[in-house]
Design a protein around this nucleic acid. Structure first.
Length: 223
DNA sequence: GGCCAGGACACCA
DNA sequence: TGGTGTCATGGC
């Protein structure tokens, strides 16, 4: 077993299954993946509630709604004008190429699907991988700000590693199993929120405290 | 009242 | 290729 996989089991034992992605449908996962860009999930939930209330959280309605109305509904998620355009870019692509059928799109082989997603304006590496893993069920590792911070602070990778360096490292050291990759990313976000924040890291009680290399800000047990 | 959150893109050197 | 600015609301 790799050290990284061992870390996964440590987190799983401590936090339990996270049951990601919290959504009622694959389509909702895609929308959530775009809305959560650089935004806390609590704000995304409000935007999603608005979309549900107006009954537009489906491919047909989202295709028909005008971008201004859409922008107003997703306002709580921040960057609402930019995100409304992003949602429109995705839904237009889906209608143009797959008749608005997400299941049809997800039949595309993983590597091709990833390139297609990346070709859509507003969908970058992380959002593409989130959609691949949590909506399409493809076995890919999702890198985010928490992953980078946690892995560098705990000595898995250098702090200046880029997205694909981190993704390659992770996928080489973990089984190609969507269930594991799904759970691990969710556990890393949980760890990041509770113990490995950008500022004020709380190492005491962190399940990875012994491995932490964050000397500068690590909180000492000594009085 | 400041910081930052489950990023991506445009622009510039 | 890498650094910086922009997009913006809401919780803590």
């Amino acid at each position: 077993m790799t050290r990284l996989l061992g870390t996964y089991y440590i987190l799983l034992k401590r936090f339990g299954e996270q049951n990601w992605w919290p959504a009622d449908s694959e389509f909702e996962v895609v929308i959530g993946a775009i809305l959560t860009q650089s935004t806390s999930w609590k704000n995304v939930e409000k935007a999603i509630r608005n979309l549900k209330k107006k009954d537009v959280l489906n491919p047909e309605a989202l295709y028909k709604i005008d971008v201004k109305n859409l922008s107003g509904l997703i306002r709580p998620a921040g960057y609402h004008n930019a995100k409304a355009r992003k949602l429109k870019e995705f839904i237009n692509y889906l209608h143009k190429n797959y008749e608005g059928n997400l299941s049809l799109m997800f039949q595309v082989p993983a590597e091709n699907l990833r390139n297609e997603l990346l070709s859509i304006w507003g969908i970058g590496p992380e959002t593409a991988d989130s959609i691949m893993l949590y909506a399409a069920g493809k076995p890919v590792f999702v890198v985010d700000a928490y992953t980078k911070r946690i892995f560098s602070r705990h000595g898995f990778v250098d702090g200046d590693i880029d997205y694909y360096g981190l993704k390659d490292f992770s996928e080489k050291n973990l089984p190609k199993d969507a269930r594991v990759l799904n759970e691990f990313h969710a556990l890393l976000v949980r760890l990041g929120k509770e113990h490995c924040r950008k500022t004020k890291p709380v190492c005491i009680g962190c399940p990875l405290e012994k491995q932490c290399k964050n000397k500068k800000t690590k909180i000492s047990r000594k009085k």
